[in-house]
Design a protein around this nucleic acid. Sequence first.
DNA 1: CTGTTAGCGCATTCAG
DNA 2: CTGAATGCGCTAACAG
Lengths: 344, 344
Amino acid sequence: MENNKVTIQDIARLAGVSKSTVSRYLNRGYISDEKAERIRSVISETGFKSNFFAKRLKTKRSKLIGLVLPRIDSVSVGKLLAGIGYILEPAGYQAIMLVSQLNEKKELENIISLYHQGVDGIIIDSVAITPQHIALQQDIGIPLLYTGQKHPDANCLKIDDEAAGRMMGAYLRQMGHFHAVFAGVTKTDVAVGIERRKGFAEAFMEGRPEAKVDFIETGFGFLEAYNLAGDMLQRNPTVVVGATDNISLGILRYFHEREIRVPEEISVAGFGGYDVGAVVYPALTTIAFNFELVGMNVAQRMLDLIDHRPTENEVELPFFFLERESVRRMGSAESTRQTLAGMA
Amino acid sequence: MENNKVTIQDIARLAGVSKSTVSRYLNRGYISDEKAERIRSVISETGFKSNFFAKRLKTKRSKLIGLVLPRIDSVSVGKLLAGIGYILEPAGYQAIMLVSQLNEKKELENIISLYHQGVDGIIIDSVAITPQHIALQQDIGIPLLYTGQKHPDANCLKIDDEAAGRMMGAYLRQMGHFHAVFAGVTKTDVAVGIERRKGFAEAFMEGRPEAKVDFIETGFGFLEAYNLAGDMLQRNPTVVVGATDNISLGILRYFHEREIRVPEEISVAGFGGYDVGAVVYPALTTIAFNFELVGMNVAQRMLDLIDHRPTENEVELPFFFLERESVRRMGSAESTRQTLAGMA
DNA sequence: CTGTTAGCGCATTCAG
DNA sequence: CTGAATGCGCTAACAG
């Protein structure tokens, strides 16, 4: 290690060969066993490590992947990062990350900044893919890969939010619910704000014009949802669905404080599959996304893109249903009513 | 932007000056207003950005800070990262991170790897500072700063875990608890495994030889704690304290499933102040650490270290008590019992 | 298989 | 104030 001073030149001198021979040894080398051995020994004695910047200056490849994240202190982002790490690390790549704070403009700046930083590719957990994002791709010579959102003209790899919404809609319909409040987020977030909600409403309503879905917009934090839970209640739904587990958690807390029993009096469901959904009471029924897996897929795709391996666009990732305790089957009440009607 | 090709040379030619003049313009330069203006305009037209690697090769400073983290998908790490970002970004630094997966050896490798990567300094959210960590400092010419753990021979900046433990111990004693189970983690983690527990036991026991603290070792996940909650219960304590909110959450869930009422039948407390502690029922009483603030302090200290500004070592960061619903005052039961005794 | 020769893009002497 | 020259440490032809 010794104060960073050892260069390829030094070890060339010490081993009695030329710089290029050392360089060859370091990369794929046409080298005689004898010299290779001499070099190897000198290198290990000196603790030599090739200078990162000099190397990158020549090769134009940094072995660095840029990461643009909407925020960092969130469960899903944490999982995503873990998954990305599992793939990148063994491949010899490192990640350098920038946070956009849920801000589209900042997201753009971050992409540009990373690009100038010399990364080999950029993974963007996007809040919104704007025309500028698309335009940017032309000017940039490195692959950009989006997750979180999708766009026909961009490399994307994300969960199929609409299908996830449909799954939840179908489940609640089949559980006999007929009036839902969907607590969603801004439409700027196409994936969560539009697709998830659309899929849900379609499947929930399907063939039941008398069913009803009310929409209430909230933010991503559970505190915001908590504050709006009263409004949701006033619509008098049989079930309220949070676009995110965090949202559902806030709602659950509000109901608990008012001693509104879930699921006896009202059902609650969410999307995400966060661990905390399991410790809460009642445990939250939700659609679980495997963000770690998403991360792994995204990272692998980025590597493929960098090495110009063929990739198929618009792959969407799987998810699964996590039935827990917060949704009640409405059937019994209805059949009771029917029975009574029959008796009259 | 245009395919990365624009170099300082190009803009020199276009502006009709020499490379060195452009270079001077880019840094703090002795330059005539006229040429400065010409250069400025050419630069903005071409969208020129100086090559990161070439620049670093010369200057020996990367404006990169290495981050070594125990894991990435954790609340506290997320907050810490956010805090670090708040300081680093405006200062023009970027972070490059590596994850150690709670593994000491890996942590060491990551530090070395980052060092060779040419970062200006390394922040380590350590799981354990070993002699090798200390030895490493000699060989490395850049500042290392630890958080999460401390060591007299290293730059450290962390929460005072022992004091946090004491605070909780004193609170529970004053609430009339006399038998606690402390659900802690391995001693390898000096901060959480030893200091926090030690502080707790000292303050809880202080001047009460008849009081009792049982120790049960668990991991960091709430599932592990959940599985051990039965053992904790068998000790028949008045309160169980998780070394971490996650641990306490697992315990709370176990109790809930067994219909053991908290805090009526048994109290539960934790450390961390995670948001989820507030949505759970009963809301978790805990010692809240402001990890974001820790991150900001750590980042600032790193910047000071890099610029050779004087810093004081062993600063420890504040925390505060978050009294919520999961701990009961034992006084009433005792006085009831005393009253009954008096009547007999 | 190996040494020599050129730069990569930039910052920095050193003379003007 | 400015241009010419030099080299950071490394890789990649190019001739042997």
